[in-house]
Design a protein around this nucleic acid. Structure first.
Length: 292
DNA sequence: TGCCCCCTGCAG
DNA sequence: CTGCAGGGGGCA
C-alpha cells in the first residue's frame, strides 16, 4: 500500500511518539513477519527514525536498526495506553469504517506488537502478509540489496530531470507509467503516484520511454515532485488500508486527478477518466489531458 | 524483460 | 465464482 508519501507520513507521526522509548517486549503473532531475532531489540532505546524509498528505519541505541516494509496492506499504529479505555466499537462515516482503529487493536491483521517501557504499543498490522520487519544495523543497512539498488529520492536535490531521463532511458521500451514504478529509476513511487505523475505531465501512460522528448522528461520530473509533495501534504492516500501512526486516514485521493476516478469527469476538462490494465496494474488516464 | 507468486478480503 | 487491490522478488 504505502508509497513514499504514506511511509513519510507514518515516519513524521511516529518519530514524535517513540523516540526515546525503550522496547520492553516484542510479540510475534505471525512469526514470518519478522526476519531476525527479536531478542536483540529488548531493552534497547529508540534514537532515530528515517525513510528511504518505501522503507522505514528505526535506529536503536546499540547500533541495530529495525527496517519496515509495509508492501500492500501494512500499517504501523502507535497507541499510547489501553488502560481504562473501553472499546468504543467500530465507528462509521458514510457507510465506511473511519479507519480510526485505535480502539480495536490488536485485530485479525495484527502481526507484531512492540510494547514500550511506558506501556505504549506499536502495532504492525498487515492483512496480506506481504510486508516485513527485519533487523539490521547501521553498517549492514547500506549494503542490503533492497536499499543499495534504489534510485534517487524524488525530494532530494540529486533528483534532477537529467538524472530522471538517464535512468529512464535504461528502459526505452517500457511504458512510462510502468517505468516510474521501478525503484531503481526513482525511488518511492507506486501505482497511485505513478498515475498522477503521468497526468501532471500530460503524458499518455502507455507512451514508451524511448519516445519521450526532453520537455516531457522535464514535465515528468516536475510532476513527480509535485504529486509526492502533495501526497505528504495531505497525509497520504487512503483507498482501503492506509492509516498514519495514530490510525487516521490520508486525504490525497480527495485531490487526485485520475487514480480511482475512472468513469468520473476529469477535474480539468470534464472528459471521462478511463481505466485499463498495464502490466497487471490498474492504470487511469484522461484521454484529452494526456494526449502526448 | 515479462509472468507468476506471495496472501487476504472485498466487490461484482 | 472471478478479478482486483498503495509492492516487489524470483524465475524463465
Amino acid at each position: 500500500m504505502p508509497e513514499l508519501p504514506e511511509v513519510e507520513t507514518i515516519r513524521l507521526g511516529l518519530q514524535k511518539k517513540i523516540i526515546g522509548l525503550t522496547i520492553k517486549q516484542v510479540k510475534l503473532l505471525t512469526p514470518k513477519s519478522l526476519i531476525g531475532d527479536s531478542k536483540f531489540l529488548i531493552g534497547r532505546k529508540i534514537v532515530g527514525l528515517w525513510r528511504r524509498a518505501k522503507i522505514l528505519g528505526v535506529d536503536l541505541d546499540n547500533g541495530n536498526t529495525i527496517l519496515f516494509h509495509l508492501k500492500m496492506s501494512g500499517q504501523l499504529i502507535w497507541i499510547k495506553s489501553q488502560s481504562g479505555k473501553e472499546s468504543q466499537g467500530q465507528r462509521f462515516i458514510g457507510g465506511h469504517p473511519t479507519l480510526d482503529m485505535r480502539d480495536q487493536m490488536p485485530n485479525r491483521s495484527t502481526r507484531v506488537i512492540f510494547t514500550f517501557s511506558d506501556g505504549s504499543k506499536l502495532y504492525f498490522n498487515d492483512q496480506r502478509r506481504f510486508g516485513w520487519i527485519r533487523i539490521s544495523d547501521k553498517v549492514k543497512v547500506r549494503s542490503e540489496k533492497f536499499i543499495k539498488n534504489l534510485g534517487p529520492e524524488p525530494l532530494e536535490k540529486e533528483f534532477t530531470w537529467q538524472i530522471l531521463k538517464d535512468n529512464l532511458l535504461r528502459h526505452k521500451s517500457l511504458p512510462i507509467k510502468v517505468a516510474l514504478l521501478d525503484q531503481s529509476i526513482v525511488s518511492g513511487i507506486g501505482n497511485i503516484y505513478s498515475n498522477e505523475a503521468c497526468f501532471a505531465a500530460g503524458i499518455d501512460p502507455r507512451k514508451k520511454v524511448g519516445d519521450l522528448v526532453d520537455r516531457e522528461f522535464q514535465e515528468l520530473h516536475k510532476g513527480v515532485i509535485r504529486v509526492i509533495k502533495d501526497g505528504i501534504k495531505y497525509g497520504g492516500s487512503t483507498k482501503t488500508h492506509f492509516v498514519d501512526a495514530e490510525g487516521h486516514k490520508g486525504y490525497f485521493l480527495d485531490y487526485a486527478f485520475v487514480y480511482w476516478r475512472d468513469k468520473y469527469p476529469c477535474r480539468v476538462c470534464q472528459t471521462t477518466i478511463e481505466k485499463f490494465q498495464l502490466r497487471g496494474r490498474g492504470t487511469y488516464w484522461c484521454p484529452k489531458c494526456q494526449l502526448n
